[in-house]
Design a protein around this nucleic acid. Structure first.
Lengths: 341, 341
DNA sequence: CTGAAAGCGCTTACAG
DNA sequence: CTGAAAGCGCTTACAG
């Protein structure tokens, strides 16, 4: 059984200074890269610190240096398979540049206002918003606090905030195009939650893509991005008098639900009886059981760009805001009959 | 375009005090529940604070109160579907009691030592370790720093640390039992990474369960908990001269890989040709396409217990360590022929 | 290179 | 109830 520390307080630089017989300044300098300390003094300090198990308090430090290395990261329930992957990569990336993610949880499509503002009691250096929706007022408030915002996959009505966004419209068009060229005539749509930006964009992209071929959306159901909602929507769609010959889904999870509905519940063959296309290309889409044809929303690029925007922005509030667009690409697998590119 | 804050510093209690014409103490008291301030004074302060957009600095505050409300949460790449769900619930739960998760990322089965200790520069009130493995030395170091640890799903060689653990051994036995009773004779095993505690426990549980019926593991492959590794392992197992009539997998993701291998690659029927059982019961297991029979590792209970242990432990270093055991249950779905309970 | 002192933004006994 | 002062653990000009 490990020995429990008997209520002793955390070791401070004062303790180290005392043991080493030097000033607190010296201790501070020892642990500040580039500060001027003699080798001899540094050795003594390091020695004492080691002996005592000293770890400098990043919070106390931040009070004077004014840099906390803390980044607020707003995430939801991580239910979509896309988000966890995103979050894992993001925190790993932040850690690599010695930043820390302070997690802010929001219920999925809610406004991030209250929880985010509450979290800003911690003087974070920036906030990444990758879930929920953000109002111009909340964004404004962040600016007043001097906290730069980086939006991921969502846009603000009032512009003026860094963001990385997938070109959802173009992505959905890609799918529409490929589907029509392969001869599909009755293309249905399973949408996500209406309040979500990307839903509107993907929906519009599909419509515009079809329109350019003189087609309209054949039928339509609304889901909520979950597997289950895609499943239910597809059942409805495919049981119609005249069923669609293709279904484009607003995300992969719903597309998988649709596949399961088609195959297991309706006994249809995919793609022979109906083509199914998703959006995102989550890792699971490549699993043989799904082998889902989809539009890739490049998550690694998203994370890289966020990290980049963060580095660029922190400490430079006056830089003009930048929107980085990510180009989606068609990923041709087995769930849809598609025209050659 | 939003107006950017012109390099102004964050509003402090001093600013508010000045505007309200009161002392900083008064400002502090206004925002400290239960402190004695006259209604009149409180109003003036609140008014001024609102006008200025004051938000008290939790970090500066923590320096005197000695409570940061920060909890370090050690997580991996969130690749398993189990973890993201866990993390989402945990952060939501922490937020509910006004704690914040400071995320620490570790590469999946690595020792958490370095990244965790680095994160402890932030005076967190506790650390939850839900990924990687932790050495007694690292645990010891945390104790020296006075930082309570709560382990989730992992145990320490040297005991003495709060933990919540699934009774993996019992869970695997459950599966072994049900499989044998249903008449399976050739039960194979797909294991996870050997370095992981739960792998050892589930493996042992299976062996003991089979042994109690006079059986041994029929064949065995080692995976790494990923879908792909389960897929590969199952292909090997099922292509053998004499294939198994059931496969027990160390987690659901591998079980799904095994199902895909059996059905799509080998053209076998599940469960008619081979029964497949997983472990965890991730949300996806219930999807019709898998409909996976599995052993539930109750994640909600895990989170509730962690939150509870945290509450109980914080500020009370001398409490004896507690291990909360979670009882796994058999979830009977369609991927295995099982005996009635 | 080194240390004493002031300061970061807050809270909390202590007097009044 | 209220304010002046000391203190939390650090850093950083400023002198030496």
């Amino acid at each position: 059984m490990l020995e429990r520390r008997r209520g002793r307080r955390r070791i401070t630089s004062e303790d180290v200074a005392e043991l080493a017989g030097v000033s607190r300044s010296a201790v501070s300098r020892t642990f500040t890269p580039g500060a001027s300390v003699s080798a001899e003094m540094r050795d003594r300090v390091v020695q004492a610190a080691q002996e005592l198990g000293y770890r400098r308090n990043a919070l106390a430090r931040s009070l004077t240096t004014n840099s906390t290395d803390l980044i607020a990261v707003v995430m939801g329930y991580l239910s979509s398979q896309y988000e966890p992957y995103f979050l894992g990569r993001l925190t790993a990336g932040l850690q690599r540049v010695h930043k820390r993610a302070l997690l802010v949880h929001v219920d999925d499509s809610d406004d991030v206002g209250v929880p985010l503002l509450e979290a800003l009691a911690y003087p974070v250096e920036a906030a990444v918003v990758a879930a929920g929706s953000i109002s111009p007022e909340t964004a404004e408030e962040c600016m007043r606090l001097g906290i730069p915002l980086v939006l991921s996959g969502r846009a603000l009505k009032a512009d003026g905030v860094d963001a990385v966004r997938c070109d959802n419209h173009a992505g959905a068009r890609l799918a529409a195009d490929a589907l029509v060229r392969a001869g599909h005539q009755r293309i249905a749509y399973i949408g996500g939650k209406v309040s979500i930006q990307s839903e509107a964009e993907r929906s519009a992209g599909l419509r515009d893509g079809l329109a350019s071929h003189g087609l309209a959306v054949f039928a339509e159901e609304q889901g909520d991005f979950s597997f289950e909602s895609g499943y239910r929507a597809a059942v409805t769609l495919l049981r119609a008098q005249v069923p669609p010959d293709a279904i484009f889904c607003c995300n992969d999870a719903m597309a998988m639900g649709a596949m399961d509905a088609a195959r297991h519940t309706l006994g249809l063959r995919v793609p022979d009886d109906v083509s199914i296309v998703g959006f995102d290309d989550i890792p699971m889409s490549a699993w043989p059981g799904f082998n889902l044809t989809t539009v890739r929303n490049p998550v690694d690029q998203a994370v890289d760009n966020i990290l980049d925007l963060l580095q660029r922005r922190i400490g430079r509030p006056h830089l003009p805001p930048e929107i980085r667009w990510l180009r989606p690409v068609m990923v041709r697998r087995g769930s849809a009959r598609l025209a050659q590119p």
